[in-house]
Computed example of a mutant assay.
Amino acid sequence: MLSVYSGQRRSDIVRMGRQHLEDRALNVRQQKTGAQLAIPIHPKLRAELDHLPSASLTFLMTAQGKPFSPVGFSNWFSDCARKAGLPSNSSPHGLRKAAARRLAEAGCSVFEIASITGHASLKEVERYTKSAQQKLLARSAMSALGHG
């Protein structure tokens, strides 16, 4: 849920905790870029966060009660995906791309998507969302012609 509703990298996901919640937003300084983001919390994510223990420093904890490392989180995620019968290349990065794609499918501009994902390059956002944007723009174009 953190990945899908925040669009953040694994290195940022594993550091997120209650200390990042402020004014109905996740306030995150991205580790890779240093970008400071205030991401509004989606109601579905809020519902999940409300069920987590409040004593933990991070939202995501290992079975041993310790915060995940980025690599440890990726390994755990891939193992869970494999056990669930998902494709062998499933990774947290795929959820970051899915978040960007879902925003594009909802009609968000590349600027709006970048405000969530923190991408410094709009070209990277466009690469993540190219197929979603194509479908959306094609529907809009046909609708403009009166065929949608």
Score class of each variant (00 low, 15 high):
14 V>S: 05
14 V>I: 14
15 R>Q: 15
17 G>I: 07
18 R>T: 01
19 Q>R: 06
22 E>V: 06
24 R>G: 13
24 R>L: 09
25 A>D: 03
27 N>G: 04
28 V>Y: 00
29 R>W: 01
29 R>C: 04
32 K>A: 01
35 A>K: 15
36 Q>P: 00
38 A>P: 01
38 A>T: 07
38 A>G: 09
39 I>S: 00
39 I>C: 02
39 I>N: 01
39 I>M: 02
39 I>V: 12
40 P>D: 02
44 K>N: 09
44 K>H: 09
48 E>H: 15
48 E>P: 01
48 E>V: 15
49 L>G: 03
51 H>W: 04
52 L>K: 07
52 L>W: 04
54 S>H: 08
54 S>G: 03
54 S>V: 12
56 S>K: 15
57 L>T: 08
57 L>N: 05
60 L>M: 09
60 L>D: 07
60 L>Q: 04
60 L>F: 03
61 M>T: 09
61 M>S: 04
61 M>R: 13
61 M>D: 06
61 M>W: 01
62 T>A: 04
62 T>R: 04
63 A>K: 15
63 A>E: 14
67 P>S: 05
68 F>S: 04
68 F>A: 05
69 S>M: 06
70 P>T: 11
72 G>M: 10
72 G>C: 10
73 F>G: 11
73 F>S: 12
73 F>D: 03
74 S>Q: 12
74 S>A: 12
74 S>I: 04
76 W>H: 12
77 F>P: 13
77 F>W: 13
78 S>W: 02
78 S>I: 02
82 R>D: 06
83 K>E: 02
84 A>V: 07
85 G>C: 14
86 L>P: 11
88 S>K: 12
89 N>W: 10
90 S>Q: 08
90 S>F: 13
91 S>H: 11
92 P>N: 13
93 H>I: 06
93 H>L: 08
93 H>Y: 10
94 G>R: 08
95 L>K: 00
96 R>V: 05
96 R>T: 05
96 R>E: 03
97 K>L: 06
98 A>W: 03
98 A>F: 06
100 A>W: 09
100 A>F: 09
102 R>S: 11
